[in-house]
Nucleic acid binder design. Sequence first.
DNA 1: GTCTATATAACGATAGAC
DNA 2: GTCTATCGTTATATAGAC
Lengths: 204, 204
Amino acid sequence: MPVEKETEEKIFEAARKVFQERGYEGARMQEIADEASINKSMLHYYYRNKDTLFFKVFQAGVKKIFPQVFEILSSDISLKEKTTLVVEFYHTAFKDNPQLPSFVIFEMNQNPERFKAFIAGQSIEIPEAFLKQVEREIEVGNIKPINPKQFLMNIISMCMMPMVARNMVQSLFKMDNGQYEDFLEERKEIIPDFIFSGASKGGG
Amino acid sequence: MPVEKETEEKIFEAARKVFQERGYEGARMQEIADEASINKSMLHYYYRNKDTLFFKVFQAGVKKIFPQVFEILSSDISLKEKTTLVVEFYHTAFKDNPQLPSFVIFEMNQNPERFKAFIAGQSIEIPEAFLKQVEREIEVGNIKPINPKQFLMNIISMCMMPMVARNMVQSLFKMDNGQYEDFLEERKEIIPDFIFSGASKGGG
DNA sequence: GTCTATATAACGATAGAC
DNA sequence: GTCTATCGTTATATAGAC
């Protein structure tokens, strides 16, 4: 059994946890080593320095947030079905590490230039097919006129904001962890309904 | 003219900028001093240490985000009017420092215990009157049944997410600063409409 | 590959002259 | 109040034995 691979993965997993919890600046190499139960020097042996290790973690994080959603958005199903699937994805994908969205968003704000190139390099791009589909649904008269990007923004916002601002909202709503998880679970049904029907009983 | 007050405020303003840009861990006392064009020792003379200075900045930030919104929410106007006012508030209040929401949310996630007491101490609390109003509107039949907290969460999400995740969204949508500001401006009208009418043309 | 020991640099904070 | 000089600590990173 190759011990190298095991240690390398242990380090990565520990780094993922610490970086997501504390951010790049707040993370300590020593804490990562402790979390992985290995010697601090091993971090440098496997991943030359803090920057390299961080970037691997960040990169993996981005790949967990975008590609699957973009795949749903470019698939050949109705707008309503897409919405439901996207909402469901965001409410299940981050159950094991709820801090991931917040981590990626914050680090993106810290260093926009650094990651613009990264996004451009990967095929991380809003699917043109989705934007066209929204426009078509408007022309046909199924939905009301709206900028397709605004439509998408509304969906993403309602999904991610409660995760990104979890501690703030949880404090304000005076909920414990269990109650907040129920709150999030409830949103899986509420959001698609809210998007397509709105709040008014009579409709638009 | 009392020079003390001037210097103290210059420091605070510089600290606000640097903390909001880099976060607590990323902020450097030297950078704050440079930003304020004063000697580094002055930071300690006026605000004992980094923690004290940070807390003052954070505290001021929280007070810019919540009280005014909660005042709107507890005022004696219709649900639709409240929604419009809240959306408008969030889209004008942070034009001078767009990073404020992101800053408060991130630092809240970093240290939840530390600020729960602070929130409890201040009268920062979801107005009971607002939640009751939503319930009443449901009973009367003006809006469809929904958990009032979910209703509020949807509004806040659609307002704040585009600011919090600005660099991420701006990269994905390939917008420059001007285009993104137009995008945000457009949301002032879109969000209230989206909330009360939804996307479907026929309504709910 | 894994350890101990240490180099090197940066940061927050203070002392003390003016 | 404001400055220079410096202390004490902690962080990343490396050298070198095993």
